[in-house]
């Protein structure tokens, strides 16, 4: 089976407000899909629907041919960094081990196997030397790698990343994208970001999301699509391959559909 994630007419309404409107799309194996869209456009909600944390109001979603909840063991999730208490007394090693939580039953400690997997994951994202560091004493890019390692430790088949390049300097951004390009050989990746700058030169496919989703199974974004997503005329500047988008104005028309 080629389709990893299938959404069919998925709507999400929270407190009477439409967050996602009529999403129908299939994400295939080994896709590297980038989803762009303005802040508050529903990107995080989209990922949470795939994780089964938010149930669609209408429509149907399957992940690996099953319900999202049942497929969670195959999904690696890298949440937004801003959600964390950076002062929490926990080090890199413990955070990464947490990725094995679903594999160990309640009452059981982490085993030797978990530790060797943690070592492998930390070496893969090149932060093995930082393993004893408290999570707050890392740079944004290093911290992002910790959460990628936590997602990778259980060898997921699908990796979801929420704003992985927010609060990361541009050099680190490139390194993170290089890492993801390496990873996409083995797994399917969905990445959401409002950072349109770099994304298109790294991902294979792009979707635009602002309540509605625009997805053409390719990497082409037309000015018309962007205009529909950002609700305003957008200039597309092409310097070779990387696109850059300049918003000319905001018209405050948010997603109420």
């Amino acid at each position: 089976m080629d389709d990893i994630v299938c959404l069919k007419n998925v709507w999400v309404e929270i407190d009477g407000k439409t967050i996602l409107q009529d999403h129908t799309l299939n994400i295939r194996q080994n896709d590297f899909l980038g989803i762009i869209g303005p802040n508050g456009g529903g990107k995080t909600t989209f990922l949470k629907v795939i994780l089964g944390l938010i149930k669609p109001s209408h429509g149907n979603i399957t992940v690996f041919g099953n319900s999202p909840q049942k497929s969670r063991p195959f999904i690696g999730y890298v949440p937004q960094l801003s959600n964390f208490d950076h002062e929490f007394p926990i080090n890199v090693w413990e955070v990464v081990l947490m990725g094995r939580l679903s594999k160990r039953p309640i009452f059981q400690r982490y085993q030797h196997e978990d530790e060797s997997l943690a070592e492998e994951a930390l070496k893969k994202v090149e932060i093995w030397n930082l393993r004893d560091r408290q999570i707050g004493r890392l740079s944004g890019g290093e911290r992002q790698r910790v959460f990628i390692a936590r997602a990778l430790i259980s060898h997921p088949k699908l990796l979801l990343l929420d704003e992985p390049t927010a609060s990361v300097d541009s050099k680190m951004k490139t390194k993170i994208y290089e890492l993801l390009s390496e990873l996409k050989k083995e797994l399917t990746i969905i990445l959401v970001t409002h950072d349109v700058g770099v994304i298109s030169s790294h991902v294979d496919k792009i979707a635009c999301l602002n309540c509605r989703i625009f997805y053409h199974d390719s990497k082409e974004i037309t000015p018309e699509t962007l205009e529909a997503v950002y609700h305003c005329p957008v200039d597309l500047l092409a310097h070779g391959i990387p696109h850059r988008i300049l918003k000319t104005h905001e018209d405050g028309d948010n997603c109420s559909c």
Binding site: L51, L53, R72, P73, I75, Y77, P79, N83, F84, D85, F88, I90, E94, V95, L97, M98, L101, S102, R104, I106, F107, R109, Y110, R150
Partner: peptide, 22 residues
């Protein structure tokens, strides 16, 4: 002692703990 790893995950990151089936 019995639930140390679960409590650690829950206090640090509720969302991830939920995704992990807790």
């Amino acid at each position: 002692k019995a639930l140390f790893k679960e409590f650690l995950a829950m206090t640090f990151d509720e969302e991830y703990a939920t995704v992990s089936g807790l």
